[in-house]
């Protein structure tokens, strides 16, 4: 174990801004991408539903 206390863990030996700045932005990007993809899938399925209805109306 490297850290004596929580405060020590967050300060990262004085480099907290740089270390957490890297890890948090990475985490935010990796979390945002699947959410954006879920939204994209929902839109695609809605359009597909509209396409189905058009097709049925034409048939």
């Amino acid at each position: 174990m490297n850290w004596g206390s929580g405060a020590e863990f967050f300060s990262m030996g004085g480099y907290g801004f740089y270390v957490w700045g890297s890890f948090l932005v990475t985490a935010a990007c990796l979390a945002a991408e699947p959410l954006l993809l879920a939204a994209r899938r929902r839109r695609a399925l809605e359009r597909l539903q509209a396409e189905r209805q058009r097709h049925e109306a034409a048939a």
Binding site: M1, N2, W3, M12, G13, G14, Y15, Y18, V19, S22, F23
Partner: peptide, 15 residues
Amino acid sequence: FVAPTDAQQGEAYRI
């Protein structure tokens, strides 16, 4: 929690 501190760069190396 496992990897030790770096001798030259201290904790900054964890990036």
